[in-house]
Design a protein around this nucleic acid. Structure first.
Lengths: 203, 203
DNA sequence: CAAATATAATGAACAATGTTCAGTATGCAA
DNA sequence: TTGCATACTGAACATTGTTCATTATATTTG
């Protein structure tokens, strides 16, 4: 009886249909401005249907978050390929910053949005952990080769993540306007700040 | 005819009444969860009245933001008093982090919340600028005495602000749960990370 | 002081939101 | 063909920010 399997398949297809539409709209308009009704319209179903596949709007968020972390990981793997761990660290930093600037609404729901973290604890530890590990491995490499003025991997991870996240999120929330005059200079300024930081903590 | 003056005074008193209630509720429940109706109830006026004194909810936000920056500045002035610029820098960092952790909802509306920046450009450049200048002066001091491995004041400001903001905001949005196991360790971890950073960039 | 005018406050109404649920339609099994 | 389970609908609910005709209050004028 392959009917239950088909039903199962249809169910996941429907979830993917919804997720895809949600991802598209989240990217364009952001999480907050995207309404369930809007998503329902886009896939030509009624609002109520979405609640047959997702508990609430947050669960939809988690699904898209997982996707987003996957994308970031892909960017890391594509952009940060140097065998020199210090150069690779710089590549990771640049990739992260550019990802944030070029996918601001995605970055928002990945790292800025408030999300009930009961679910998050599990979900973040899948794709999100992969992104983090990419950085951790690089830093482990740097530290084992005694290239940095920081000896603890966790501390180093926290430092660089905070730095790049701080830069990106302050900019996305327009809080850097006091410091950086011209808007179009932002990408370069952020990247320069990150690289100056790396230079300062490099032995 | 002192009547127009009294009217003026009553008008500002009413604004302050609203702002105070808003501040209280923003602190307790956050900006998003505080409704205009709730504020109106608290001061025993009708919802419509608030719109006679504030264009919209955002304008109320700006008013409270200004207050909040003032508070942060006070904390800086009280906590960061060392004559040694390096020690003072550390004091600023600790004060900033503790302020964020102890006033999470306030920190949120100061540095994380999305706010239309047409108004912000002006408003941020008053109290917000004073806070920033406190840091800038300290860093100018450090750099002029050749204590840091960073030579540019703007770069140094951006680095340390990003670092501490990154730490605080990642934690407030529960994104550090992947890295820091125990919740109660967070304050110490954040401060240690900040001080390790300072140590690394110190000559 | 009384009437006319200006100002202040109200609260019902609007549109949009996330979410629910009784009802309807569809497809599968007997 | 009949009965049942599953899928879907869309109206309804509560809540949100915001507006505006109406009412109440206060001030100025005659």
């Amino acid at each position: 009886m392959g009917v239950t399997e088909r039903k199962e398949r249809e169910k996941t297809e429907m979830r993917e249909l919804i997720t895809a539409a949600a991802m598209k709209m989240f990217l364009e308009d952001g999480y907050a401005k995207t309404s369930i009704r809007g998503i329902a319209d886009a896939i030509e179903y009624s609002p109520g249907t979405i609640y047959l596949y997702f508990k609430d709007k947050d669960e939809l968020l988690y699904e898209v978050q997982a996707d987003a972390y996957g994308r970031l990981l892909e960017v890391f793997q594509k952009e940060a390929t140097s065998t020199d761990p210090l150069e690779r660290l710089s590549q990771i930093g640049r990739a992260y910053i550019n990802f944030g600037l070029n996918n601001s609404e995605l970055y928002d729901l990945m790292f800025i949005i408030r999300s009930p973290m009961n679910v998050d604890e599990k979900l973040h530890k899948v794709n999100g952990a992969n992104c983090l590990n990419f950085l951790i491995e690089c830093l482990t490499d740097c530290i084992s080769k005694d290239l940095l003025r920081i000896n603890d991997v966790q501390q180093a991870t926290l430092q660089i993540w905070s730095t790049v996240h701080g830069l990106v999120s302050l900019h996305l929330r327009c809080r850097l306007k006091i410091m950086v005059e011209s808007e179009e200079d932002v990408p370069q300024v952020l990247i320069k700040t990150m690289e100056d930081y790396l230079a300062a903590v490099t032995k």
